[in-house]
Structures are given as C-alpha cells and as structure tokens.
Design a protein around this nucleic acid. Sequence first.
DNA 1: TTAAGCGACTAAATCGATTAAGTTCTCTTA
DNA 2: TAAGAGAACTTAATCGATTTAGTCGCTTAA
Lengths: 348, 348
Amino acid sequence: MKRKLTLKSIAKELGVSISTVSKALRDSPEISEETREKIKAFAKLYNYKPNNIALSLKNRKTNTIGVIIPQIVHHFFTTVIYGIEQEARENNYNVIICLSNNAFDKEVLNMELLANGSTDGFILSVSKETMMKEDYHHLNEVIDQGMPVVMFDRVVEGIQCDRVLIDDKAGAKKGVTHMIRSGCRKIGIITSEDYVSVGRLRTEGYLDALDDFGIKADDKLILKLDNIDDLSDKSKKRIEDFITNNDLDGVFTVNELFAVHASRVINALGKKIPDDISLVCFTDGQLSEHAVPSLTAVSQHGEEMGRKAASILINKLESPEDEEEEYSTTYIDTSLVERESTKEVTRR
Amino acid sequence: MKRKLTLKSIAKELGVSISTVSKALRDSPEISEETREKIKAFAKLYNYKPNNIALSLKNRKTNTIGVIIPQIVHHFFTTVIYGIEQEARENNYNVIICLSNNAFDKEVLNMELLANGSTDGFILSVSKETMMKEDYHHLNEVIDQGMPVVMFDRVVEGIQCDRVLIDDKAGAKKGVTHMIRSGCRKIGIITSEDYVSVGRLRTEGYLDALDDFGIKADDKLILKLDNIDDLSDKSKKRIEDFITNNDLDGVFTVNELFAVHASRVINALGKKIPDDISLVCFTDGQLSEHAVPSLTAVSQHGEEMGRKAASILINKLESPEDEEEEYSTTYIDTSLVERESTKEVTRR
DNA sequence: TTAAGCGACTAAATCGATTAAGTTCTCTTA
DNA sequence: TAAGAGAACTTAATCGATTTAGTCGCTTAA
C-alpha cells in the first residue's frame, strides 16, 4: 500500500520547500523554469493530486452541492438528480445526496450534518412531514449562515430562497383540457390532500380547466388520497369506490400509480378506455409508457428541472456575496404525451 | 448573516484558549468543572457544531462512502442506494453518489475525484464500457492507496475487493424451473450479450434449469440484445422477430422491459398469457407489478444488497488496518413472485 | 526549606494545502 | 563601490479541529 503523495512528501523528495512545490505546480513565475519543470515532471510521474479536504478547509469552499429529497426509489426524483448531477459535473461541483424518507427529523439532521462544512449550498424538496408541521427553522438556519438554498418541486412559502417548480397547475389544466376537447364532460380527479403542494396545484389546474369550458365542478368528483407517493390498500379501495360510484367519462390522476389502478378498476367494471372513460395522468414514466393501454400523460421534464436548480445554485455560489439578494421562481413547462388512453381531439 | 461558530471564536468570547474549549467540549478532566460547564453552556446556546472538513483533515477520515453507479434513473439501483443510505446513516457515514453513465472515462474521473480525500472507501457497480474494455487500473489504484472497495451487481474478476452479488444464476434457474414445472417445454430467453456479467449469469441459470429437466438447449431460443438497461427500437424489432419466429410456450427475460415488450408482442400475435405462453422476468419492479397481466418475477432485494455492501465496507473501514486481508463474495438470495403471467404448478 | 506533585491551563504541532511576507544571492548602475 | 533591484527561494500564517508537551502557581512531604 503506497501512501498518497502530498506537497510535503514531494518537497522532501526533491529537497525543496513545500511552498516551492505548490508554486511550481501552479506555474508561479517566482519559481525558475528549471525547478518548475523538475517538480511538475515528478508530480506527473507519481500522479500527484491535491487533497480535496485540505483545499476545502483552506478555501472555505467545498465545491459540493447537498441534495435532500424525500425518497430515491422514485422515478421523478431520480430524473431530477440526474439533471443536477449533469449540471454540477459540468461546473466542477460534486453532489451529495441525502434522503429524508419524508421524515422531518431526518431532514433536519441531514441539513445540519451537511451544513457543517460539507457543502456550499442546498437543493431540496421538502418532506411531507415538514410541510405538515410547517417548521422551517432548519432551512432558515442554513440560509442565515449564508448558504444558498434552491427548493424544487415540493416547496414552501416564506423562505428566502430560489424555487424551481413544475408548472403543476398549467400541466394539470393541459391534461384535463385535452380530455374535455376530446369529448369528456364528467371528469373526476384522483389527487392528494391539499397540504402536498403539488397535489393542491394540480387540483387547481383541474378546476381551472373545467371552469374554462363552463363545466361546473363537483366535490364528489374530487378524490383526495393521503399519500401521493405510493398506493396503499386503503387508497386502492377508495379509488375503486370512487370510480364505481360515479358515472365518469374521464379520470385525471396526479400520478401514474393512481392511474394504473384506475385503469384496472375501469377494466374490471367492463368499461373501455378510452371509449367509455378517458384516462390521463400527471407524470410520464415507465408505467404510462408501458401500461396497456398506454397512458396519455403530462410529462414533467425532471432532468431539466434538476439542471435548472443546479444552475441557479451554482450561479449564486459563484457570484460575489455582496450582490443584491433576489430570489427567483422558475417554472418548468410540462408537455402532454398523447397515448392510447384518450380519444383524439377533432379540431374544427 | 451570522458566521459559523468555531473553537477559536468561542475561546475569544470566553477569554480562554482554543485547546481549553476543545477539551471542555470533549469532557476532559484536565478542565475544571466550572470552566467546562461554562463553555458547554455557551456552545449549546449558540449551537456549536464542529466543522466536518477540519475534522476530516485532522483525522484523515471522512466518514463518507463513495458510491459509483452506471445510472440512477433505474429502479434497481435506487433500491440499492436506499439500502446503502440506511446502513450508512445508522453507522454515522455519509454517502456521495456519482454516476458513470456507463462511460469508462466518467467512472475513472469520478473515482479519482472522490479518492482525493473525499471518501474513505467505495461501493461500485462497474459501467458497461469498463467491462468491455477490461481496464481496471482506476480500481487498482484506489485499492493500492488503502481504500477498501466493495463491488456489487456488476462486478469484475481479478480485483482485490469484496463483492456482493445477486445470485443471478440461481435466480434465473428458479424462474425457468417454475415455468418448466408449470408445463412449459419450449422456453426462450431474452438476455444480453455475455460481457454484461448479470446477463451471462442469468443465461447460465436458464441453461442449468433446462439441463436439470433434460431439456436440450437450442441456440435459436436464446436472444442476446446489446443493451440490458433500455429498450431500443432495434431491440424491440429483434424481440418481435424472436417471438414470432419461434413457437415458444414460455419466455424468460433478464429484465422487466424486455418482458413488457414480449407481452405486447405475444398479445399482438393473438396468443394468451399464460395459457399459450408463460412469461417470467428477472427484476421485480413497478412494471411487473402493474402490467396487465401482472408478471411473475424474480425479485432481487436491492435494498438488502445495498445494506450488505455498506455493512461490509464499513466493517473494513473500522477494523484495524494490519488485519489479514481477505475478500468475500456474498450472494443475495432472490425470490420468485408469482403473478398472472405463469400457470400454477400442480404438485404431485 | 525545598523539591516533587498536581490541578488547570496554554502553547505549539499536526492534518495538507495556499500565499503573504521574509531572506539570500547576484547583478546592475549611479 | 555601495545601494537597489530582482530572481529564486524559504518561513510562517491560515483554514478549524485535536492532542502532546509545556507552564505556572500552590500544596505537601521529607
């Protein structure tokens, strides 16, 4: 096992001082051509690479972005991470990912941990529990220490930070409008409780679309489930009842899982998709693409979101500190991917 | 913006030396009860937390695990990461995740980057390109520097490291055996080229199962596709031809995507699953669960794999260095999840 | 009376890098 | 010929923490 090279060991080996080595490697004109070449050749030969930790300490800059997300076994979040990773890499930043598992305590712990020198800034999507508690002291604390924060997807108000959002409302509206245009008149929505911001916004988009076409909203056609991230048996049951007891000709869901289950239920009732009931879901992932019938979906472009969030953060990190603080909110456009679960829109 | 507290600033504030503060906070008996209490109270009040970077430098230990995977938008890898995260957290380790995007150069770059002080050890699944090139100098280099490495899932031979593997061969055998027991006799396999270790092993398991029941293998019934991670149009076409041109009564696939497409093709041919053709795939994910018909699958327990890999690595990191080096290979058992795509096995 | 012992601290080295502030020489020039 | 400039280095401070090796005053025992 060979020990890693350090400036010290190189200096000793070549009989010069540490600072000479450092300067030579950074091409300082203070060091003679001859010495410089000798040191650089030696460093190259033994593959010297400066120690990141020492550099971080010295520069008070880690070139690392901390990402905190509620869960990682989740297609959308992974696409966002992928985008963050790309943008970070291109700008010479590292990425540390921590999971909150949707728990407030873990979110706080992770932030504190990373804030103690490990990262220069944060990109996060707040956990469900944090949203319910409305306790954001951990966010304010890191911001107070001068670390920039960018929130994405699941954001909260009243924090001094940038935000990157899927245009959930417009996306949902787009999906529901498509159904209306294709002939649906009694459209139900399977969404989440309002404290989950994305659920609330998608519900609003749904209502907006109905309103635009003069269709009256009906509370009975709005099903709000507890958990937007997975499909419990209880949720399955509620979806079954919802579809069975309402004579719908269209269903919009805020995620793929709800849609897939709705599809099953509709099938079991002997109804045809899309002839009897159209189905559109928010989120375009593997399930929408490969389900039978494949599902028309509102695609969220998570990768673009991640890139944008990272680029905003890096920008903050690289700009002089005394600059006027301004916080932006960026919306990432959605697009509608038409598949087999909706009828075609006949244009006039 | 308030600056982070340091030992120095506390010392100044309280009119004592830095080392007194350090010792007081670590409950050293060298410091008088009175002073200790005063310092601890102050630190608590202003929420002092030692700087991780400084600690890492001083201790030459980062308490961070570097994870390098080919891609993150991939259900199986995320389950593994989830397992790694859990185990790491429980043992006070951080996790840095880097993506190689299946590219050799990025894998090398990431390793070099993380090896320069950022992590104490690595958990990795090698990229496809690395496997093809058979160039492992980057692995040997970090191992040479005394950093332990644990490879998982996509591993290579001849490296001094621990390995955690899904028992791919046994898993595939389990799946194929189930099909045979349920009555299938002409079973095809859709797999990957042999340089992808998991593909090769699953093919071997398939052959083993046939052999056990005295069924002769037929090269024509083995379809090897280029890419095991996604489904290109070319792959789709080859699957279509494969199923159309062979009169199969069972299909085993090495991943979900191949199976889902096979299912479509079988449907399009007017054949019934499982009555005419049974279908089993390796990997139990969202698609298997929610496809129609739902797919019988060999479940890989990625989370357990991640936990195991992390636990092995942490163990190495915490054990005295001079210990005899021994490298283990751990197999994570698979289990068969029976669903709608196979017939029941009638037991004698 | 005095050296040893002890309690309670402080000084300084260290981790690995960067860099401002010296230190030597040698060469130039008034 | 002596001061000043400049080339080529070295010393030392710094980042924030830990830890070993002092220091200093006071008590105690021979």
